[in-house]
Amino acid sequence: MVLLDLLGRRWALRVLWELRDRPAPSFRALQAACGGASSSVLSSRLAELTAAGIIERSEQGYRLTEEGRFLVASLQTMNAWADRWAERADQALP
């Protein structure tokens, strides 16, 4: 439940999504990629995700830790389900 609480906070999943393939070189770059996250909210999410051991700041910028990469890989199953669900919902529309 603690993980779901963390991931359910505004912008948390978006941060993970933006870092899934490559680090963000700076706070501003990550903020731009997140398209609309306020500085204060993004800063809070980064602090929480860092404290949880999911992301870290390195010389390359913000990036997923090994645990973060494992988490993102685990979320791919949910993403696949969501794609199927969206397809069914689209087919149900008149």
Results as ranks from 00 to 15, higher is better:
4 L>E: 14
5 D>W: 09
8 G>T: 09
10 R>A: 03
10 R>L: 03
11 W>V: 06
11 W>K: 02
11 W>E: 04
12 A>T: 07
12 A>H: 09
13 L>I: 02
14 R>G: 04
15 V>A: 11
15 V>Y: 06
16 L>A: 06
16 L>I: 10
17 W>V: 12
20 R>A: 14
21 D>A: 08
21 D>I: 02
22 R>Y: 13
23 P>I: 05
23 P>K: 03
23 P>R: 01
29 A>K: 15
30 L>V: 06
31 Q>T: 02
31 Q>H: 04
32 A>Y: 08
33 A>W: 08
33 A>C: 06
34 C>T: 12
35 G>D: 14
37 A>F: 08
37 A>H: 01
39 S>M: 03
39 S>Q: 12
40 S>C: 06
41 V>G: 01
45 R>C: 01
45 R>T: 03
46 L>M: 05
47 A>Y: 14
49 L>H: 07
51 A>S: 00
51 A>H: 03
52 A>K: 00
52 A>T: 04
53 G>Q: 09
54 I>K: 02
58 S>W: 03
58 S>G: 12
60 Q>V: 12
60 Q>T: 11
64 L>V: 07
65 T>F: 05
67 E>V: 01
68 G>I: 12
68 G>C: 14
68 G>P: 08
70 F>L: 13
71 L>T: 07
72 V>G: 09
73 A>S: 15
74 S>K: 14
74 S>D: 14
74 S>Y: 10
75 L>H: 00
75 L>R: 00
75 L>T: 01
76 Q>V: 12
76 Q>I: 07
76 Q>S: 13
77 T>Y: 15
80 A>L: 09
84 R>A: 12
86 A>M: 11
86 A>T: 10
